[in-house]
Amino acid sequence: MADNTTAHTSVAHTGAEGGHGSFPPFDSATFASQLLWLALAFVLLYWLMSRLALPRIAAIFEARRDRIAADLAEASRLKAEADTAGAAYEKALADARARAQAMAGEARDRLFGETEKSRHALEERLTARLAEADKAIAATRTAAMGQVRGIAVDTAAIIVRRLTGISAPEPAVAKAVDDVLRR
């Protein structure tokens, strides 16, 4: 029912060329109005696209391309700057290292000299003391050896008296001890 009523009232160009009941896409009565509205709609769309929408999108692409190009240029400039700074840093580092080495060498030489000097002084002092000690030892030894002869003579006299029961005259004992010591 509803279909029928709409079908009857629906044809746009009632009365023209009798479009009733025919297949709508081939109903030539509607062609003129469709063409008119299509022309208006398409011209409007074309105008909106070519004047508004597409330039906007193109501008976005343009801006993006420009931005990327600018960023790349900035990046390469910064890289060049960084390279220069890096070279300067390397140079400063090398200078500092050379200076440090020079200073270290100087300090080492100076300290070595000083050490050598104090070592010499110490050695001399020690040699002197060693000589003194040697002298003292020799003196002590001579003294001791002197005493050893007396002790030996006394001991020999005592041993002779104990073994033989006679006391030997002291000069003879001394002479005999001296003979033994001399051997």
């Binding site: 709409t6 079908a7 009232t9 629906s10 044809v11 297949f23 709508p24 896409p25 509607t30």
Partner: peptide, 10 residues
């Protein structure tokens, strides 16, 4: 009607 959808309606 499968054709009804193509009807031009004033």
């Amino acid at each position: 009607d499968p054709i009804h959808q193509f009807q031009i309606v004033k």
